[in-house]
Design a binder for these strands. Structure first.
Length: 427
RNA sequence: GGGGGGUUUCCCGAGCGGUCAAAGGGGUCAGACUGUAAAUCUGAUGGCAGUGCCUUCGCAGGUUCGAAUCCUGCACCCCCCA
């Protein structure tokens, strides 16, 4: 079997393991079953999940069996790890819907139908829900010394803060996750848990519990926490999270995020998120150093990821839109071409009468198109020279738009700043 | 249950009863420079109309010519003692 640890190591995906000496050998001996947990806090996965997904994917390709555990139960509690505030709890119905929505996305990364190492999707609600409190305290809680729990990073850091507290509910979280591991071991032969470095405490808690409860030795591995060189969170933009579902984040925007990635982060992302080999990544980075302006590494990264997440069609759409937005002349396009290319761009329909007579004021146009949240903001953008109609800068605040400004028969392309487009259609 | 501290515009945070749409920082947005990058610099940053009106300082009342600033009640948060 391929040496999965070696593979993960050169990609710098290994932060810590519970057995540095033997883990590689243990994994090479025969196919193993491993799991990673995902909180179903939304109806889509996002970029923050990518690293764990890719790790599971690599394990599967190396012949191991990955289990995706969604925390239908633990999501109701909330993991305090890496959180500086108490969480809001989610309702059962919402969690259910979220879990269901995640499945098709997972299928892009993992093969759920490939024989003996098919991936598995489990929801801990299925076993947690019927667990009685007394039973749980007796069988699980008994094995957790409170002083050990208090020493865990996730708990201690929260207790050190004076402005927020830590509820008993969140404090108990690690017991639940520990129990998950034991449960998966008993029922699916799962012996390894992987997660972000902030999961270390929870993972080791599970390993301890398994040893005390069943006398079995389980393993854990964490990957580094994903942060960008400037300290901001990967996959977060001003407009919010970068989601994996096309409904929430269009392929174009997804693609653009990676194109725009800082030089400093592109190597890391290629290693973490793509399946390109070591040599190929090295040579991409070498080229990039010679001519960073071409953004060759970013382009490749964006292409690989967009194809993986949105398929070849999604990639094509994204690339074509990019071409137009950052190059070609808009005025030559027909209505159908526009519709195609700008499919991702927010559009707004207005009655065509508004173009007649005096015409539509540029302030109203920017506001109606959603490029400004208020007319004051529209005014500001225009005054400062950031407003464009069909990629031509608008000269002044008194500009009015008439039928002459239409591209094709009924469309107008507005832009605020360098990259924010919106369409106005007139019917 | 008792005592103390807190709740300000996107975030942090300052705010003598009037000159507070509210300092400062961060963020964000736009511009310049660039490589659809980073850094830097400039400007903007409650809403609508323009030198005025409206909404905002946890919630609800009250005192006052006038309150984010004072009083009362309520809610939530934190800390300490039981």
């Amino acid at each position: 079997m391929p040496n999965i640890i070696a593979e993960l190591s050169w990609r710098e995906l290994v932060n810590q393991t519970t057995d540095d000496e033997n883990l590689a050998r243990w994994l090479a001996a025969r196919p193993r079953t491993l799991y990673a947990g995902f909180d179903p806090t939304a109806d889509s996965l996002h970029v923050g999940h990518l690293m764990a997904l890719m790790i599971l994917r690599r394990f599967q390709q190396a012949g191991h069996r990955p289990i995706v555990l969604v925390g239908g139960a633990t999501g109701m509690i909330g993991d305090p790890s890496g959180r500086d505030e108490e969480r809001n709890l989610l309702s059962v119905e919402v969690l259910r819907a979220n879990v269901a929505a995640m499945k098709p996305q997972l299928q892009r990364f993992l093969d759920f139908d490939c024989g003996r190492n098919s991936a598995l999707l489990v929801d801990n609600y299925d076993w947690m829900a019927r667990l009685g409190y007394l039973e749980f305290l007796r069988d699980v809680g008994k094995h957790f010394p409170v002083n050990v729990m208090l020493a865990k990073d996730s708990v201690r850091s929260r207790l050190e803060r004076t402005d927020t507290g830590l509820s008993y509910t969140e404090f108990s979280y690690m017991l639940l996750q520990a129990y998950d591991f034991v449960y998966l071991n008993e029922n699916y032969g799962c012996e390894l848990q992987v997660g972000g470095s902030d999961q270390w405490g929870n993972i080791t808690a599970g390993i301890d519990l398994a040893r005390r409860l069943r006398g079995v030795q389980l393993y854990g591995m964490t990957c580094p926490l994903l942060t960008k060189s400037d300290g901001s969170k990967m996959g977060k933009t001003t407009s919010g999270t970068l989601w994996l579902s096309p409904e929430r984040t269009s392929p174009y925007h997804f693609y653009q995020y990676w194109i725009n990635l800082d030089d400093a982060d592109v190597g890391m992302c290629l290693r973490y998120f793509t399946e390109l080999g070591r040599e190929e990544i090295e040579s991409l980075l070498a080229e990039h150093r010679l001519d960073p302006g071409r953004r060759g590494a970013q382009r490749r990264l964006a292409a690989e990821l967009t194809r993986l997440v949105h398929g070849p069609d999604g990639l094509t759409t994204a690339e074509r839109a990019t071409e137009i937005f950052f190059g070609a002349e808009i005025s030559r396009l027909s209505d159908t071409q526009l519709e195609d290319i700008f499919a991702d761009v927010p559009s707004r329909e207005l009655p065509s009468e508004r173009l007649l007579g005096e015409g539509l004021s540029i302030i109203d146009a920017m506001f109606e198109a959603g490029l400004a949240n208020s007319k004051g903001e529209a005014r500001r953008i225009i005054t400062q020279g950031g407003a464009y109609v069909n990629n031509r800068r608008v000269k002044g605040i008194d500009t009015r738009l008439g039928p002459a400004n239409l591209v094709g028969k009924s469309t107008m392309v507005l832009r605020a700043g360098k990259k924010n487009y919106a369409l106005l259609r007139f019917a």
